[in-house]
Design a protein around this nucleic acid. Sequence first.
DNA 1: CGCGAACTTGACGATTTTCAAAGCGAGTGG
DNA 2: CCACTCGCTTTGAAAATCGTCAAGTTCGCG
Lengths: 243, 243
Amino acid sequence: MTETNARPREGHGSHCGANASLVEKLASCAIPIRTGRRQRLALTGEEGEPIYLVVAGVVILDAILPADQRQIFACFYPGDVFRASMTPGLSGVNATAIASEGEVWRLRWPAFETLAKQDPEVALLLIKHFSEQASRLVLHITALGSLTGDQRVAYLLADLAARTGTTMSSGAVTFEMPFSRADMADYLALNPDTVSRIMSRLRTKGLLGRAAKGRLVCHDLAALRLESPLLAMLSGSAADRRL
Amino acid sequence: MTETNARPREGHGSHCGANASLVEKLASCAIPIRTGRRQRLALTGEEGEPIYLVVAGVVILDAILPADQRQIFACFYPGDVFRASMTPGLSGVNATAIASEGEVWRLRWPAFETLAKQDPEVALLLIKHFSEQASRLVLHITALGSLTGDQRVAYLLADLAARTGTTMSSGAVTFEMPFSRADMADYLALNPDTVSRIMSRLRTKGLLGRAAKGRLVCHDLAALRLESPLLAMLSGSAADRRL
DNA sequence: CGCGAACTTGACGATTTTCAAAGCGAGTGG
DNA sequence: CCACTCGCTTTGAAAATCGTCAAGTTCGCG
């Protein structure tokens, strides 16, 4: 694991969505970590439990279950916060940065604790953020519970595109695809084979194309979101969504 | 909705599991609500978003999705905390107390905010509790993602029995069953018919019996937990589990 | 006693998984 | 520069699980 010791750069708040003010306040006690593809992050710390904040890239939380199957619990995008205690007491839980380049801040609990006691506002902002982030877990529960395989894949792709993609002049959106077929399967509760079939179908329909190695293009993001009833339903509250 | 205006009674902390100290601290600004079966709780408040704390009984969060299907996002047991912002921006989200009798405290946000500014410890405890509660959402994601129908039902029943049941001298555990077949289905992402079939199978196997109206008996809780690989795996960390 | 709601159970059908084989694609070494 | 290999992906056919529909049963309640 490579870690830089420099203080975090200014100006990252703008990438971190709604909780920019929280990010600003945490910068003073954060230890920035530059992450590469498939880099594992240590979830436990020496004293107390550290808090992690994703600044760039995508981080997944996963574990290997008894039957040798892997489950991806959640994936975190810039602005999100995660901790070891967010995972149930399963053995073999990992946090992995999967984007080709990313940045994560580690906040040691004692440092955070003193910061929170100096400035009570910090803790309140974090409470609000945790509530909102719980809503993403709830959304994922809903996706697993109410969507078909095709709809689940559309939900993941549309989310990725909206959160990390860049819109081209043609209106198409290109984005890095940091999930392998197996990752998608483990996150969406499907089989890699099934995921592959679904991706092929989306390609045939013309909704999806390959931009470059490890990157996808969606020619019509609105149409992709329509494939997933959940996202279509959320469009009203664009608070946590950029497109 | 019936609400009492009395201050919360002392001594409830003991029912609330690991976060008794948080419950003690919140008692001063809590508005207690006695709940009956199928009583709906208002999720939004006048000023800011209230925080709810379950003291007794079981509360579920649900919503009706586009295709007229209901999804139960999460269920909360004594000691748990929930807020409206924990639900994604879906319309028709409800919180419903489903146990025959329960108690929920409502904490108005402004009151909580001033309490947190007086005593920073409160916010830190709530942050820790939110992290742990997120782990329950994660566990549910894992259940939906990795378990078969039979295993999911066993997971719900064993959880209910452990959290709300009483152990008889014979070793059997009786507990109130506040979920209808449809509730179980909506929570576990199954069909009511399928759930019914699975319950019949558990009864045939001798794992489950009916105690009284609305109550179940599990003659061998350890065996029931073995039906669900996830719970079997969690037994090591008995921190959040009473049996 | 009869009604209605919830639950049970069966047969059939659809989606998804499983198992197996073949196809690419990138990196390696000749 | 090309062949080779390894891992990931794709695709097919058969099997399992779960959903759907429909009919019957139980249970509580008036």
